[in-house]
Design a protein around this nucleic acid. Structure first.
Ligand SMILES: [Mn+2]
Ligand SMILES: [Mn+2]
Ligand SMILES: [Zn+2]
Ligand SMILES: [Zn+2]
Lengths: 137, 137
DNA sequence: TTAAACTTTGCAATAGTGTTGCACTAACTT
DNA sequence: AAGTTAGTGCAACACTATTGCAAAGTTTAA
């Protein structure tokens, strides 16, 4: 995915494509995994934590990435599909490998529909499966 | 649940029932909700964070409580059922109310069985539903 | 084209959670 | 009772997340 495409992508979501944002997005898109702030920070050494943090927040607010709290202690972020609005219909299972610490979107596994007891409303959900991934097995 | 019962309960799980442990267990059992270290800390003012922390870890190792990471920023703990061994068969959905911040075990909702792609193994899972609870609605 | 207005970035500070070493005390063993 | 083991309190620390503020960059509009 080249920079032009990324810039168009960000613009289509009403986010101005600055150099930093393009870099952060590119990294997330290319690794194809969910990455934490710390993961990103160490991939490009000289960029400020807070700048990356703010890029991620901006992306999150505009449905460019979605957060994954895999229980590892830091929230990770993964790129959303084009039409994603981060609502119930876009939710999918995430897999956390307890050996390598990698977290993967299982887009092929939508979160199953659960019938809640009377009186509860359902806005959002996280379904994390912990186990060992094929690479580590 | 009186202290005698709690002491027997802890002993049956091979944990020596000290005063602090009994207090922590009692609080978790009586509130019937998942509570964080900070929640517990402020319920009894003069007990050390680290003591509660260690009580919870001991409980967790001995299947007396299970952790719930509801994405609120701090892990919460809830009492296990008697026969629980915290394996796949004991897993259930947790509900996090985004209004009041309360987290509840939905023991009546077991985590649905998911068929993972080839090569993945399944050890454990967390399924958190976010929404509004009946009390806050 | 230049000044004002607005946005983004870097840096430093801060809050909160989780965790550990160490010394002290309580409990248990012989 | 003396020795050994387990539990507690305190202080320190690591790490994640978050924010205020000033400097730098970008956009707008005169
Ligand atoms: Mn995902
Ligand atoms: Mn539970
Ligand atoms: Zn792995
Ligand atoms: Zn509520």
């Amino acid at each position: 995915m080249d920079n032009k495409e990324i810039e168009q992508k960000l613009e289509s979501k009403n986010v101005k494509p600055t150099a930093m944002r393009t870099l952060v997005y590119k990294t997330l898109a290319e690794t194809g995994k969910a990455l934490s702030l710390a993961d990103l920070e160490q991939r490009f050494e000289k960029v400020e934590r807070s700048t990356i943090f703010r890029a991620l927040k901006t992306f999150e607010e505009n449905f460019i990435v979605h957060p994954v709290d895999d229980g590892s202690g830091s929230v990770k972020y993964a790129v959303c599909d084009d039409e994603c609005t981060c609502n119930i219909h876009d939710l999918h299972v995430h897999f956390y490998c307890t050996r390598c610490g990698r977290t993967r979107c299982m887009k092929e596994l939508p979160i199953p529909n659960i019938k809640l007891p009377e009186g509860y409303t359902y806005d959002n959900a996280q379904f994390i499966i912990n186990g060992v991934c094929p690479r580590c097995d």
